[in-house]
Nucleic acid binder design. Structure first.
Lengths: 79, 79
DNA sequence: CTGTATTTGTTCGTATGTATT
DNA sequence: AAATACATACGAACAAATACA
């Protein structure tokens, strides 16, 4: 399901960051690959774009991904 | 430093409003110019965005600035 | 070269919940 | 109870760069 629980004690943006981090660590999203666009994540998790962006920014801060303006966000580890 | 004293008798949003008004009156922020974004003020003064917004709303009420949705807040006096 | 679509970047508007004083 | 402050979330609009037909 990997759904978001908006009523839980953990903020949705943190839940999403955890889910995405899990997908990277499990290899579902591989190094060098682009992860889904913000719009796609908005649809999949039914969150506002601002919330999705915040979740992605967490991954960026931890170095898990790199974001290229106008291109997308890519899993770190390769070019 | 123009810092905010959160322990003082004057509420932080009023302190910030005073500081920003001073910058306008001194010409640091000129008529027609856009003042720093909410986010920039948040970082500079280490205040919550809601507090910054409240300070800016004071300037707006006194006619010192105009806020254009989705654009920014501008010093009054010109277009 | 031109126009359109895509995607991220930026900024403001608004609302709710919680904590503190 | 009221005021203040912060965290979080959703919405909306526009900009800028890129991709593509």
């Amino acid at each position: 399901m990997s759904g978001i629980d908006p009523t839980g004690p953990v903020a949705p943006y943190r839940q999403l960051a955890e889910i995405l981090a899990g997908r990277i660590k499990s290899g579902q999203y591989k190094p060098g690959q682009r992860i889904p666009t913000e719009s796609e994540l908005v649809e999949e998790f039914e969150l506002a774009r601002s919330t999705v962006r915040r979740a992605v920014s967490v991954l960026r801060e931890t170095g898990l991904v790199r974001t290229v303006p106008q291109r997308g966000t890519y899993v770190s580890g390769q070019s």
